[in-house]
Amino acid sequence: MGKTYDIDRIVDEVVSLPSLPGTVALIMRLVDDPNTPLSLVAKAISADPPLAIKTLRLVNTAYYGLRQKVTTIEHAVVLLGTKVIKNLAFTATVLDIMKDEMDSFFLHSVACGVAMRTIAMTGPGGLAIESPEEAFVYGLLHDIGKVLFKKYLPAEAEEVRRLVLSEGVATYEAEQRIIGVDHSEMGASIGLKWKLPEILVSAIRGHHDISRCPTPDEARLAAATAVADFICTQCGLESDGGPVRVSQDAWDASGLSNSHIPRIMDAFFAELPTINELVSASE
């Protein structure tokens, strides 16, 4: 086994965390200011044509359920509101970063986003989010740390994959053994760099170990993310073939009981076509 890292060393010496594109950072700032007019948000997105095109492609998928075709960002902002558009622009950006990854990883991330949205819409509630679309972002981002490992530590990432397949250990456990840091910690580092909300960063950090979340709200979101991950894996939409488990603490923190699960699963099965549509719209 080669050398291992701690999170500070890996960020300082190995991994160059990608910056959030300026337009998306600007959109996030604008939307967070309640005094920002809708037109300004639309202008900011339209000023970045590739982002505007990707956003419109996503807007027009069945996932967003709009009955009419939307051809301008201004129209999309009016129909969906700035918060949904913020998540959409952010989603378009993250999908762009991930799209060169293995198909299975990309599909798993989108599927987890859809599963999280389904949990938010049909579960017991109590998630500290503004909308189901925000839940989508939690699922989408939860494994983003794996992208960085694959890019900056390819030999170690391959060793992790081999260990997962040969010994059947969970990916995050193999990462801790071989790299010293797991993808949840790595993903949280990007979240910090991108100045994502603290609760989202914490949910990414805690999705395999909710004791890493300092507040009950954060633990509940991390737990819901773990359940979304588990549902996708059981449905054959797994990321890397590693086993995924949900601890009893996470089940308890998620607030999900057996009375919710069939509803969530049925709603998730009904959303499966939109997963493929979202993946296609991102290519």
Binding site: I231, G236, L256, F269
Partner: peptide, 20 residues
Amino acid sequence: PATLVEVLAVQERAFGNSGL
């Protein structure tokens, strides 16, 4: 709960028509 998720997922993959 994990067993219930597993049962429903396997049942859908074996007999469902959602495309899994």
